[in-house]
Amino acid sequence: MSVFGMSRTIMRNLFSGPATRLYPTREKEPHRAARSRGRIEIDIEACIFCSACAKRCPTDAIIVSKTDKEWNIDRLRCCTCNACVEVCPKKCLAMGNRYTPPTVTKDKDIFRQPPRPPKEPETIPGA
């Protein structure tokens, strides 16, 4: 007869503390593996609005507007497949290793490129 086979593991568990965390109050440290596909980050300053990412996106999560200089992403549609990052010609897209925080609304993340300041005419000091 073999019973209580599990008791060793159980007693060890009891005294070694829980293996789980009280998420979201406590997150895993270090937060994620460096390679984790968390969410797409964009360096909007470098974007040229070529729409290559939007075309490659399998879930149509990305919408790019060249006229408004606007890049937006539906985080809930995005399947973090990394296709947009791979295709970006300016390398302004990156895969961040943190997940999008939980949300209760279906908002889009909108990034707008600030209008570039018009080039000031070079002033010659002392002129």
Binding site: I10, N13, L14, S16, G17, P18, A19, T20, L22
Partner: peptide, 11 residues
Amino acid sequence: KLSARMQSRWG
């Protein structure tokens, strides 16, 4: 609480 700890959960 104790059962959770035995299963290495917070409980």
